[in-house]
Amino acid sequence: MTSPMPVHSPSPAAASPAILIEAVDKWYGTFQVLSKVDLTVAAGERIVVCGPSGSGKSTLIRCINRLEEHQAGRIAVNGVELTDSVRNIDAVRRGVGMVFQHFNLFPHLSILDNCALPQMLARGTPRWEAEDRAMHLLRRVRIAEQAAKFPGQLSGGQQQRVAIARALCMEPQVMLFDEPTSALDPEMVKEVLETMVSLAEDGMTMIVVTHEMGFARRVADRVVFMDAGRIVECAGPDEFFDAPRHERTRSFLHQILH
């Protein structure tokens, strides 16, 4: 059962992991999407999660910022446990950025406003400061010249880079990526992956759900393979790709790499 932790006593950063997932179960109705999932992510660690569709990998990272609720087990982010407490959820969401498969930019707002408005609404940042930070991060994803345009006028790759900048504007300690390149045309995958690599090089804690195995090999500290709501295998990239222990992992890798 869940044992609630006090809100305002985050343990020292060094001691508590960035993300702690312990024996998490989740059902959609009677269908179990996650069963007994355990995963601990240290600050600065990069995790790639892969697995067949329906294996629960998206659901898992969506539980980390409470877009989905887990029904049993514990999830704590930077020492704050996710319970029904709205304050805890808000505290966690402020520290966790998320990038979606379909970008989910706000189509009625300009690129600049997409990045500036959330800061103003979520943290009460004054407009000038929010726009300053937005421009800074748009420059970082190399898209500042498009700031006045609207999402509908940008390519998929550009939109996904804006989505990354928008999440970074909230100054998160952890970034979650939910299949960030699978809705993109092949020629745009590279620009998004490069942005993610540079983010990883800066030491950001990242959990990335993706099938881009090249990215996993290059960036991941650990690769997690999920199937039917369970973590089947969790290993460093060399071991994971060159000597997977489980037959299920081998057959999955065989399917997507050949």
Binding site: R93, F100, P118, A122, R123, A167
Partner: peptide, 20 residues
């Protein structure tokens, strides 16, 4: 996905409804 993105960014529900 619009509401989801707003929530993930930590925007309070009513502000997300009004602005997004």
């Amino acid at each position: 996905g619009q509401m989801e993105a707003a929530r993930a960014l930590g925007i309070p529900v009513w502000k997300a409804v009004w602005h997004v």
